[in-house]
């Protein structure tokens, strides 16, 4: 598969809903699509990264109103184990059509749960809309705290927005301060599992989106599956997005392709390096486990 995965179309887009844009991370693609899907009965609820009792610590949540979607909008650069709720959503919440947002690896987990539903009873045909967000790497909550509090010198509870872009991790506080640190320095905080991740743009999502490739406040959107295509066409027809062709925006698709290639090349090297990470008594290498080869 190409580094950008299979897709039917790629567009630069932004929500036309001002309330959503105010809360969203980028073009408000995810929140707008879920709000539309709820309205149209395409989904009965969505699993999102909701708020918790600690600042910037997301808590997976099943939501079914626009107000709840808005409360969960925006990126938290730390782990939100959204897949922990997919069986819960269908069984305890009784949803027949589940929407779910996740990082590329979480979308992979969903597809595995559908193709090999070993412990995922009655889930496979109830995933109605799986929305992916691009992802270069993720952080533990403690790592995010270290970055914000130690490196950027801001209190977690005073932060209004965090963003990654143009080689920097940026923190905006409620009172208007802006603190930054170079992305290079973040590497030591990245959760180890990300170093063998071979997907940047959520190749297996129905629709996936991220900021990279599009101008500030806009998002790059890959429409991938048949399901995704139908939902996207419906949302466009309903006037929910402004769009521009990808070849008319800067920095454009080449930037997405470059970052995706960089990530996959680097991480494929890490996967390969695991094969010879150790040493046997006879002098030959001893390997670590490779999940892409066998369990």
């Amino acid at each position: 598969m190409d580094v950008l995965g299979n897709y039917k179309s790629v567009i630069s887009a932004r929500s036309t809903d001002r309330d959503i844009l105010k809360k969203a991370q980028d073009g408000g693609i995810i929140t707008t699509l879920f709000a539309y899907a709820l309205e149209e009965g395409i989904i009965d609820g969505a699993v999102v990264a909701g708020p918790s009792d600690e600042p910037w610590r997301p808590k997976p949540m099943v939501v079914s109103t626009k107000a709840e979607l808005l409360a969960a909008a925006g990126t938290r650069y730390t782990i939100s184990p959204n897949i922990s709720l997919i069986k819960e959503a269908t069984r305890s919440y009784g949803l027949d059509r589940v929407g779910i947002v996740g990082t590329p690896c979480q979308i992979q987990a969903i597809r595995k749960a559908q193709l090999y539903p070993i412990g995922m009873r009655d889930v496979d045909d109830k995933i109605a809309l799986a929305l992916g967000i691009f992802c270069m790497e993720n952080l533990s909550y403690q790592a995010l705290e270290a970055i914000v509090e130690d490196h950027c010198n801001q209190k977690m509870e005073s932060v209004k927005k965090m963003d990654i872009g143009k080689g920097k991790f940026t923190v905006y506080t409620e009172r208007g301060a802006v603190s930054q640190m170079p992305l290079k320095l973040i590497h030591k905080y990245v959760q180890p599992g990300c170093n063998v991740c071979l997907d940047y743009v959520a190749n297996l999502a129905d629709i996936s989106s991220g900021s990279v490739g599009s101008p500030d406040g806009w998002s790059t959107v890959f429409v991938r599956s048949m399901k995704g295509n139908a939902v996207w066409d419906g949302a466009i027809e309903a006037g929910l997005f402004e769009t521009k062709p990808m070849d008319q925006v800067k920095p454009g698709l080449d930037m997405v392709k470059k970052l995706s290639t960089d990530k996959i090349t680097k991480n494929q090297k890490n996967v390969d390096a695991r094969k010879t990470a150790g040493l046997r008594a006879d002098g030959t290498p001893k390997g670590l486990r490779n999940p892409y080869e066998s369990p």
Binding site: S84, A109, C194
Partner: peptide, 22 residues
């Protein structure tokens, strides 16, 4: 290799798994 996706917690038939800080 863990990515904190939460699949394991969602899967366990006896709810023996919770996700704690990812």
């Amino acid at each position: 290799l863990c990515i904190g996706c939460g699949t394991c917690a969602g899967t366990c038939p006896v709810r023996a798994i919770t996700m704690e800080y990812g």
